[in-house]
Simulated scan of single mutants.
Amino acid sequence: MHPQLALALEPVLRDLRATGGPLPRVVPGGWPEDDDVAGAMLWHSDGSGSGVSVVLDRPFAEQVAHVADVVQDWVVEELWGTAPTNWPRCPAHPDNHPLEVRRGGDAVEWVCPADGTAVRPVGDLG
């Protein structure tokens, strides 16, 4: 896997492990076919896949925020019909909505979408 994609993916996978979320099988390469982008596939338990990528010349925080959004969508699809899909759960509203990713400068955080409260940095759940 391209090192920049691996670095951007690691904090999100760390959050999945810390919260007991499902982990994708990550297969590097094969998508997209662009020298300025590093990609991989996130495979679902049903055999379907979702692409994840980073634009190589973008700031690291932007890469992490993008990857976190993509992985969060992957988790929702993976859990659909079998478990609650609000990953990561908002501690203030655990039955209502998941946290969402917000980037501010070099910081990438999970925030409550209802009130904007920053909960934890991406990679620091658990």
Rank of each mutant, 00 (worst) to 15 (best):
G20L: 07
P24T: 10
R14Q: 09
A8F: 14
E100C: 13
T85I: 09
L42W: 04
W31F: 14
W80K: 09
M41P: 02
P88N: 04
H93T: 03
G21M: 00
G104S: 15
P28Q: 07
L125F: 06
A114M: 07
V111Y: 00
E62K: 15
D124W: 01
P98V: 01
V101F: 08
D36P: 01
N86W: 06
L23S: 06
L13S: 06
A6E: 15
A61D: 08
W110S: 04
A107M: 13
V108R: 12
V71A: 04
G105Q: 11
D46F: 09
G104M: 14
V26T: 05
E10H: 03
R103Q: 15
V70W: 00
N86C: 02
G123D: 14
W80A: 08
V37F: 06
P3N: 10
V75D: 04
P121H: 15
D106I: 05
G39T: 06
D73Y: 04
E62S: 14
G116W: 11
E10L: 07
A92L: 14
A118H: 15
D34F: 02
D106F: 13
C112F: 03
D73T: 01
D73V: 02
R120F: 10
P91D: 01
L9C: 11
R25M: 06
P98T: 05
E100P: 05
A118L: 08
R120H: 14
A8N: 15
N96P: 00
P24H: 07
H2G: 13
V52A: 00
M41K: 04
L7F: 04
H44F: 06
A114I: 09
V76P: 00
V75A: 03
Q4H: 13
G81L: 03
E33K: 01
A40S: 06
D34L: 03
P59L: 13
V67A: 11
P121N: 12
S48P: 00
A40G: 02
Q72F: 06
D15K: 00
A107R: 15
D15I: 05
P24I: 02
T85C: 13
V67Y: 10
P3G: 10
P94W: 04
V37Q: 10
P91E: 00
A107E: 14
A118T: 15
V70L: 08
G49M: 12
G30Q: 06
H44S: 00
D57H: 15
L9M: 09
G29L: 05
P121M: 13
P3A: 13
G81K: 00
G126Y: 12
V71W: 03
L79M: 06
D35M: 04
P59Q: 09
P28N: 02
S50D: 14
P88S: 03
W110T: 02
A83D: 01
P113S: 04
P28M: 12
H44N: 03
V71R: 04
T85W: 02
V54I: 11
G21A: 09
S53G: 03
P28L: 12
A8W: 14
E78K: 07
L13A: 06
V55L: 09
